[in-house]
Amino acid sequence: MSNENWQLYEIFIRSAKGLSHRHVGSVHAADPEMAIEAARDIYTRRNEGVSIWAVPSSAITASDPDAAEELFEPAKSKIYRHPTFYEIPEGVENM
């Protein structure tokens, strides 16, 4: 018997308290609990994590790279959303 029909899970790890979970790779497992156990062995052998998320790969919807231009363009043109856009008189501090 092979593990052909095992789900692929994407693994996210929180590296230290206070930081968000970050994608580190994937594992194959028969169920979500075993995915966590496998991820523990594969991705945290050196204390890399304090928390693991396992998400079925099939549950992830990703943006289309070919549509990236239209998707991100609206933000690109709005430079006034950054503090560096504004001029402040010389000598004014703490802003």
């Binding site: 092979s2 593990n3 497992a29 028969a30 169920d31 609990e33 075993m34």
Partner: peptide, 16 residues
């Protein structure tokens, strides 16, 4: 190692 994969599948089914 086939029995390990079988056991994992059986365990997953039972847990489900």
């Amino acid at each position: 190692g086939a029995w390990v994969r079988e056991a994992a599948a059986a365990h997953a089914a039972k847990r489900a």
